[in-house]
């Protein structure tokens, strides 16, 4: 274990090269629906149980299955009404289990990125070959079923190893959603030296964290989204910011929650000078215009590269 994986250099929020988004937008807004499959009886990972109750955990399993049976369609209709394209964090096995949902997303022009094979299969304990096989399997399945070459990664159930981002970059990826250290894209060091970037994906505004971990009320969730937007929009005058709302239809699409989310979404998209983007579009724009500037040795201000242990 290491004290820090040295994935990115230190730069304070007010010591950045200002980012300009397309069309002069102050804020890049993206929505990441997690479209996941949880298995009823997964093999038990030694580091983490999939279900809190003995198998079959009917309550836990059925709670997630609700998203696939009921929730996604409701969420898609909502995002359609506000002109928001989803960037789908996809359990690749969904392509096999429920291809109808994949087709509905694809027909909307949504992006798919990898969220592993199942959200009940964890990377903990995988050796390099295993994790590479899992990542490549997910990338291949997404390509086969959607025609998209997967650009982004969110580790299944946020389970990582020290090599996760290196392996995903080597599988052809250009961005990760696994890091929560910033409200702007950040270059991430991977061992291949390929351009690779962290795109902000907020855990704080993630509906599962809000509803399952923090157990908040739906209208408070809407308030949090509006408050986050107001601040990032204001600060975006000085340099483009990123706001992500990660969703899970098994949480946000319940009939007692979806209206509060809709009100918040209507508020956000009702503003001018926002860029309704996908994760890939944000990553590509950043890599095309800012990545080299931000990683150049003498590039800019406040180069905080001298952490303990230095750069690998």
């Amino acid at each position: 274990m290491r004290a820090d994986l040295d994935l990115y250099r230190y730069r304070a929020w007010d010591e950045r090269l200002p980012i300009r988004w397309p069309g002069g937008a102050r804020l890049a807004f993206w929505v990441a629906p997690n479209i996941e499959f949880y298995e009823l009886e997964p093999p038990a990972n030694p580091a983490r149980r999939a279900w809190p109750r003995p198998v079959p955990d009917v309550q836990g399993y059925a709670t997630r299955d609700y998203g696939n049976r009921v929730g996604h369609m409701r969420m898609m209709d909502l995002l359609d009404r506000y002109g928001v394209r989803g960037s789908v964090s996809l359990s690749a096995a969904m392509c096999d289990h429920h291809p109808e949902i994949i087709e509905l997303c694809a027909s909307r022009g949504w992006e798919f990125f990898s969220h592993g094979i199942y959200n009940t299969r964890y990377a903990y304990g995988m050796d390099e070959a295993q994790e590479r096989a899992m990542i490549e399997d997910s990338v291949d399945a997404i390509a086969r079923h959607t025609g998209q070459r997967c650009a982004g990664y969110l580790a299944p159930a946020l389970t990582h190893t020290e090599r996760t981002l290196d392996l995903f970059a080597e599988a052809g990826g250009i961005y990760t959603c696994d890091l929560f250290h910033d409200d702007q894209p950040t270059p991430v060091r991977v061992r291949s030296g390929k351009p690779f970037v962290s795109v902000p994906y907020s855990l704080e505004l993630n509906d599962t964290i809000a509803y399952v971990v923090n157990r908040i009320e739906p209208r408070r969730y809407g308030e949090m989204i509006r408050q986050a937007f107001d601040r990032l929009y204001r600060e975006g005058e000085h340099g483009g910011t990123v706001m992500c709302v990660p969703l899970h239809a098994y949480q946000v699409a319940h009939p007692h929650r979806i209206r509060a989310f809709e009100e918040a979404l209507a508020y956000v998209v009702g503003h001018e000078n926002i860029w309704l983007a996908t994760g890939r579009e944000i990553a590509e724009h950043y890599i095309a215009h800012y990545h080299d500037l931000d990683t150049a040795p003498a590039g800019g201000i406040g180069d905080g590269d001298a952490g303990e242990g230095g750069t690998p």
Partner: peptide, 28 residues
């Protein structure tokens, strides 16, 4: 560290559910 090989085997990765108790069906 290495996980047992069954962690990368997916015997129920197929169209529909991963069990046979009910059919896959979208409400809408």
């Amino acid at each position: 560290m290495t996980l047992d090989a069954d962690h990368l085997r997916y015997p129920n990765r197929r169209q529909g559910m991963d069990h046979d108790r009910y059919d896959w069906s979208m409400l809408a």
